[in-house]
Design a protein around this nucleic acid. Structure first.
Length: 483
RNA sequence: GGGGCUGUGGUGUAGCUUGGUUUAGCAUUAGAGGUUUGGGACCUCUCGACCCCGGUUCAAAUCCGGGCAGCCCCA
């Protein structure tokens, strides 16, 4: 009887779905962990303090690295006049279906409607054209951290597919093609480091096909991530714009020889989508697991006491909370039992828990429990700081290793359409070869119920035949369903 | 792009088929008090809900239409 009652309670409080029931699990995990909430507007979600704090850490670490490259932060307006947005044809074509417009203010209709930025190339580059005159003005390396709106019509998923999201948009300008191209390694290097060293995510870099590249770019490269449900999500990206925007916006400079030249440009971004990717990859049946280096709370301290020990235990717990050189949180709420707290913080994904009770105090020790493996360990107080560093580090490594394994296990090679279709059905990321033809790309999508060519693997050389038409293949590509 | 399902306190739900006897029930959370505390403790009291607009009707949480929101499946 008692057991039944306990189980019921547990179900109602915690996450009802197991991670296999993927969509259910994801939604419940992030909502119950109190990271986000829905708003009255479809596709626009509220980032609550815990969720926003994760973004702040990602942002801060990324921004530090940008600054080391001499990149400066700026802020451009949210509104873009229609005439500006129209200046580059491919860019307009790519974004126009998803642009939200402001057409009136108060009772008046605006003379020219204003786009809510879907990205800021057009408004920034109209200023760049004014600001850049001589070779001395270059390179110009600006970035902004802001929000953008792209009015998606597919059903929204918090973090992963939202109509408004937060990101950085870097917009750099160089005098030569070589300099511009050199930036690719620097920027993707930073993004990759953030993914690996902070978010514990193993991704892969792909070059987008012509139909999937950024509207207005010469090429797009992106770090792609595989989710446990077999879908690939595009993470941070880098777009080499060449002189496309330079010509549309007439961004020219006088070179050292006194000749006019068009500039060379890049744009690049990391978005709040990464948070969703990270949570989806690391979580388990109990809820979220936040990697230690991006966790707003790294260690939760839970005092355990009988009434007679209360003062003594709380005092010791408070000491620990103050002394430890980590982001700690002391959960001294008296209205909850320890068991409740354990479950609550596990759901929220706090990487480490310290339990301290009378028995531990007597022995000068604490119990340390890690979220990723659930392993309990007794640690002596005098070694605590050193041990915690080690354990947190190990949690990070373990999560990264799991992510690498998941990517490896989730990837298979297919040499014909039958194998491809089967693999996609089995929720795999597929490696194949492709002739480069747009028709074959479209057919692959049609025959696999919507899987796309994610991008080209530039590290590999095609040796076989195109998976669709059978002609000589040009590229090794990844194929999967996406968000 | 096409099809389907759903919307009741903060959360999970009962009631809807067959409109009225419901002061909209239960559990949980939250608030107050008390007893507890090593894996979701317990008692007493209290607060809190029919998504919105319109229609049908003597009467709508319940039936109908539209909107908004959430979810699923297919291309």
């Amino acid at each position: 009887m008692v057991k039944k009652k306990v189980n019921k309670t547990k179900k109602e409080l915690g996450i009802k779905a197991e991670k296999d029931e993927y969509s259910e699990w994801y939604t419940q995990a992030i909502i119950k962990a109190d990271l986000v909430d829905y708003s009255p507007v479809s596709g626009c979600h509220i980032l609550k303090p815990y969720g926003y704090a994760i973004w702040e850490i990602i942002k801060e670490e990324t921004d530090k690295r940008f600054k080391k490259l001499g990149i400066e932060n700026v802020y451009f307006p949210l509104f873009i006049p229609e005439s500006l947005l129209k200046k580059e044809a491919a860019h307009l074509k790519g974004f126009s279906p998803e642009v939200a417009w402001v057409t009136e203010a108060g009772k008046r209709k605006l003379q020219e409607r204003l786009a809510i930025r879907p990205t800021s190339e057009t408004i920034m580059y109209s200023s760049y054209a004014k600001w850049i005159r001589s070779w001395r003005d270059l390179p110009l390396k600006y970035n902004q951290w802001n929000n953008i709106v792209r009015w998606e019509f597919k059903h929204p998923i918090p973090f992963l597919r939202t109509r408004e999201f937060l990101w950085n948009e870097g917009h750099t300008v160089y005098a030569t093609k070589e300099e511009a191209l050199r930036e690719e390694k620097q920027i993707l290097g930073i993004y990759n480091e953030i993914l690996i060293n902070y978010m514990a995510i193993a991704g892969f870099v792909s070059r987008k096909t012509e139909s999937e590249k950024f509207a207005g770019a010469e090429f797009t490269k992106a770090i792609e991530c595989l989710l446990p449900n077999g879908r690939v999500v595009q993470g941070p990206d880098f777009h080499y714009d060449g002189q496309i925007f330079a010509k549309a916006f007439n961004i020219q400079f006088l070179n050292k020889q006194g000749k006019k030249e068009y500039v060379w440009q890049n744009t690049w971004a990391i978005t709040t989508r990464m948070i969703g990717i990270m949570l989806a990859i690391h979580g388990d049946d109990k809820g979220l697991i936040i990697p230690p280096r991006v966790a707003p709370i790294q260690i939760v301290i839970i005092p355990i006491f009988r009434t007679k020990d209360k003062v003594k235990v709380l005092k010791k717990a408070q000491e620990l909370d103050k002394k430890l050189k980590f982001k700690t949180f002391l959960d001294d709420r008296e209205e909850y039992s320890p068991g409740y707290k354990f479950n609550d913080w596990e759901m929220k994904g706090i990487p480490l828990r310290i339990e301290i009770g009378p028995r531990d105090i007597a022995k000068n020790q604490v119990i340390v429990v890690r979220r990723d493996t659930g392993k309990k360990e007794v640690v002596k107080l005098k070694n605590l700081d050193k041990e915690l560093i080690k354990i947190l580090d190990d949690i990070h490594k373990n999560l990264l290793k799991r992510s690498e394994e998941m990517l490896k296990k989730g990837t298979i090679t297919a040499k014909n359409m039958l194998a491809l279709i089967k693999a996609i059905k089995n929720k795999k990321l597929v490696i194949s070869e492709w002739c480069g033809g747009k028709e074959c790309e479209d057919w692959i999508k049609a025959k696999t119920a919507g899987a796309k060519i994610i991008g080209i693997n530039e590290q590999a050389i095609a040796k076989g035949k195109c998976i669709y038409c059978g002609k000589k293949a040009k590229y090794v590509v990844w194929i999967a369903k996406t968000y």
